[in-house]
Design a binder for these strands. Structure first.
Length: 199
DNA sequence: CTGCCGATTTAC
DNA sequence: TAAATCGGCAGA
C-alpha cells in the first residue's frame, strides 16, 4: 500500500484536477529505484469543447482510445518523431479529457534521471542542462523513463502514481499562475483558453 | 498507399 | 530560425 492519490481525485472537473496536480509528486519505479518529480506545470485538454484535444468532437482513433478510458489512466503519446508526452485521464470512462504534465522538478532519483536524459552523471551536466532538465513535456518523459510502454497504465498502482507525500517530501504552498496553452496556435478559439497552470 | 502534420527540443 | 525524425491520420 502506498500513498497514491485515489481514483476519485481524477473523477472531477479537468481544470480543477490540472490545477490541483501542481505541487504533487509523480513517482515512477525504474528498475529497482524510484524517480520522483514534483509537478510544476500542467495543461487541461477537454475533448467535448476543445479543438486542441486529440479527441475533439468525440473523435475515435486507435490513439485517442486511451482518452476515453477510466480516470487515473496514463495517456502517453509519441510526438514530432522523437518525444513522448505524459497525460493523466480525467473524468469518468467514456469522457475524453486529460491533463498534460508539462514540467517537473526531480526530487529523488536524480542520478538515474540524468543518465536517462543525457547518458551521464548529474555532476557532469552544464548549468544550462541542470536548469532545463525536466521543464518540458518531452524532457520530463525522457528524464523519468516514460515511454509508449506506459500508455494505458493505471496510475492507481505501485509502479507509477501521483502522491502528495513521498519520503521526506510534502506538498508545499505556492501561488498558481495561469496562461494560454503552449503549441496549439492552430486550435482557433481554444488557443486562448487559460488552461495552462504553473507554479 | 501517399503525404502532410504535430500538446517538442535542440542545434546553429 | 530551422532541422531532426516518424507515427497518426485523412484522403485518394
Amino acid at each position: 500500500m502506498n500513498t497514491a492519490l485515489k481514483r476519485e481525485f481524477y473523477n472531477r472537473d479537468t481544470l480543477k484536477v490540472a490545477e490541483e496536480l501542481l505541487g504533487k509528486y509523480m513517482v515512477k519505479k525504474y528498475q529497482d529505484q524510484l524517480i520522483v518529480g514534483r509537478i510544476t506545470e500542467t495543461e487541461a485538454y477537454i475533448g467535448a469543447i476543445d479543438k486542441a484535444c486529440h479527441a475533439y468532437g468525440g473523435k475515435q482513433t486507435p490513439r485517442t482510445a486511451t482518452l476515453y478510458m477510466r480516470e487515473g489512466t496514463a495517456y502517453v503519446y509519441f510526438i514530432y518523431g522523437m518525444y513522448y508526452c505524459m497525460n493523466i485521464v480525467t473524468e469518468p470512462e467514456g469522457v475524453a479529457s486529460a491533463v498534460l504534465i508539462r514540467g517537473v522538478e526531480i526530487v529523488q532519483g536524480r542520478e538515474q534521471a540524468s543518465v536517462l536524459r543525457y547518458g551521464k552523471p548529474w555532476e557532469q551536466l552544464s548549468a544550462y542542462q541542470k536548469n532545463n532538465f525536466s521543464n518540458g513535456p518531452g524532457k520530463l518523459c525522457k528524464a523519468m523513463g516514460i515511454t509508449i510502454e506506459d500508455n494505458k497504465k493505471d496510475l492507481c498502482s505501485n509502479e507509477f502514481y501521483i502522491t502528495d507525500r513521498v519520503g521526506q517530501y510534502r506538498e508545499e504552498s505556492f501561488e498558481v499562475k495561469t496562461s494560454p496553452r503552449i503549441g496549439i496556435d492552430y486550435a482557433e478559439e481554444a488557443k486562448d483558453f487559460l488552461w495552462r497552470f504553473y507554479i
